Simulated assay, not measured.
Amino acid sequence: MEHRNSFLLSFLLLLLPLLLNSASAQLKQNFYQNICPNVENYVRSAVEKKFNETFVTAPGTLRLFFHDCFVRGCDASVLLASSGNNAEKDSPLDQSLAGDGFDTVIKAKAAVDNDSKCKNKVSCADILALAARDVIVLTGGPSYTVELGRLDGRVSTNTSVHSNIPLPTFNLDKLISMFTAHGLSQTDLVALSGAHTIGSAHCARFAKRINGFSRTSSVDPTLNSTYAQQLQQECPKNVDPRVAINMDPNTPRIFDNTYYKNLQQGMGLFTSDQVLFTDSRTTKLVNLFASNVTAFQQAFITAITNLGRVGVKTGSQGEIRRDCSAVN
Rank of each mutant, 00 (worst) to 15 (best):
Q232D: 10
V155G: 02
K208H: 12
A207T: 05
F31D: 02
A129Q: 04
T159K: 09
T222N: 08
F170W: 13
V327Y: 09
N164T: 15
H202D: 05
D103G: 07
E2C: 01
C324G: 07
L184P: 00
F255A: 10
C118N: 06
R253A: 01
P37E: 15
G311K: 02
T145S: 13
F296P: 03
R321Q: 12
N38E: 08
D240F: 14
S22H: 13
N171P: 00
F270E: 01
S177C: 06
Q26H: 14
P249L: 08
A111I: 07
F11L: 15
N328M: 13
A201P: 00
G268M: 08
N257D: 03
Q265E: 15
N224V: 04
S200D: 13
M1F: 11
L307A: 09
R133V: 01
G140L: 08
L151S: 06
N21S: 07
E147Q: 05
A295K: 09
V137W: 01
T180D: 13
D134G: 09
L16D: 11
E2D: 12
H182C: 06
F66I: 01
I245D: 15
I301R: 03
F31R: 09
A204G: 11
T61Y: 04
Q265P: 05
D323P: 02
R205L: 12
V275T: 12
L128A: 05
E40W: 02
T139A: 04
C124G: 08
Q186A: 10
Y42H: 14
A111Q: 08
A108P: 01
R321G: 09
R63T: 13
A303G: 02
N306D: 12
R63Q: 07
E53S: 02
C203Q: 13
V39G: 05
Y42S: 09
F296Q: 05
Q297D: 06
V155Q: 09
V112E: 03
E2H: 09
G153H: 03
V105C: 02
D256G: 04
L148E: 15
P249Y: 10
R133G: 01
D173T: 03
I254G: 00
V47S: 13
T226M: 06
G266N: 08
G60T: 03
N306I: 00
N21M: 14
T222Q: 10
